[in-house]
Each structure stands twice: as structure tokens, then as C-alpha cells.
Simulated scan of single mutants.
Amino acid sequence: MQLTDTKYIQNRIPNELKAVIIKALDFYPDLAEVEIEFRLSENIRKSVMQAQPKFNTMFGSRKKRTYLIKISSFFSLKGKVTPIHLLPEDVLIGWIGHELGHIMDYLNRGNWSMILFGIGYMTSKSFIISAERVADTHAVNHGLGDYILATKDFILHQAGMSERYIQKINKLYLPPEEIMLMMENKSVKD
């Protein structure tokens, strides 16, 4: 499926990441009319990327809600600070695809559900695990399984992350084996 970048004219996309963001968006035709701002940020707390609804659109119609994906401008790769856009393309597509999976989840939530989601995400580790599972499931179901695996492999084995960070990732996110099983099950259904 190849959509053109004019399809996403309503979205604000940083030039450095335009190609990978459009490739990731192409897997989500349901998001073609959804307004999403992709913003490079110097300071994202404990994260490389975050997807959230824009606060000023939270209390209106769900159909008019807009979203923000914050992307850290830099990544610590084997102890060296690297501009995020220099990471491998498949890794970035997987990472962005995962964040778009969160937005797919948000589309189905009313305002109170979104508020409860935010509280749950800030206060409950089991809620975080569930939310990350949903985002990965959306990504795999939209055909991004290989990209999600590339991202997980990069984080767990190539990026030179601390053992503490790797343990956190292993606790909160689906393991590669479960992603592969989801991909197998999806291919059997297709």
C-alpha cells in the first residue's frame, strides 16, 4: 500500500523524519484523516517517543481530537549521542508504527476513558504493560511486525543500552517471540 505524502497534509511532520513517518503512516489507512503532529523534542521524560491526544482537543468530539507524537531529537547509541533520524530506517518505522498503534487505541476511547487511561498509565505497571501490548498488537495487525521486531532487536541487542533499561523493556513490552507468534497467527488468518 503506497499512499502519497499529500494524503497527510493535515499532519505536521519534521523534514528529517518525513520519509519514515510517511512509510509508517502508510500501514494505517484508518489514520489518513486523523490530525497528528510529529514533534522533535529535546526532553521526553524516560522515553524515546510518546503518543498522546492534544490536551486542548480532549473535551470536544472524539472525531475532532488531534494527537501529538513526541520524538526525542537524540538517541544515546552505545554511549554516543546520535541524532534520531540517523537510526536505521526499519527501526524508526517500527518505533513510529508502535506509537501509531497507541493512537489507534485512543481513537476508540471516549473522553472519560482517555482520562482514566492517563491515570492508569501514570500509576500502574500492569496498565502500562497492557497499553504497550495493545499498541504492538495494532502495529502487527497493520503489517508492521517485521519493523516492530527490528526495533526490539535494535533496543535489546544493538543500541548498547544499560542492563537496567533492557530489563525495563523486557518487563513492559512484548518479547520478540510473542510478536513472531502474533505474526504467524495473523498470516494464518489472512
Rank of each mutant, 00 (worst) to 15 (best):
G160P: 09
L31A: 08
G110M: 05
M1K: 02
Q2W: 13
K189E: 09
Q52V: 14
K189H: 08
H157E: 09
L107M: 04
M104T: 14
E184F: 06
P83F: 10
T57W: 12
S124A: 03
L156K: 01
G60E: 12
L17A: 08
Y28V: 05
K152N: 00
I148F: 00
Y147D: 06
Y165H: 11
A19M: 02
M180K: 08
K171C: 07
G145M: 04
R39I: 04
S124M: 14
D190P: 02
Y165D: 11
K23E: 15
M183P: 02
E99H: 04
I9V: 10
L86M: 15
M1I: 00
N170S: 09
F75H: 07
M1R: 01
E184Q: 04
K64C: 15
L156W: 03
K54N: 03
D30V: 12
K18Y: 04
G94V: 06
P175T: 00
T4M: 04
L149H: 01
I69M: 03
V48A: 14
Y67K: 04
P14M: 01
R62L: 04
H102E: 04
R164L: 14
L116M: 13
T137H: 05
M1G: 03
I129F: 09
Q50I: 11
H102A: 03
L149P: 07
T137G: 05
K80L: 03
I103P: 02
L100A: 05
M182N: 00
I69N: 01
H102F: 07
E163S: 13
N170K: 15
L107F: 05
I84C: 02
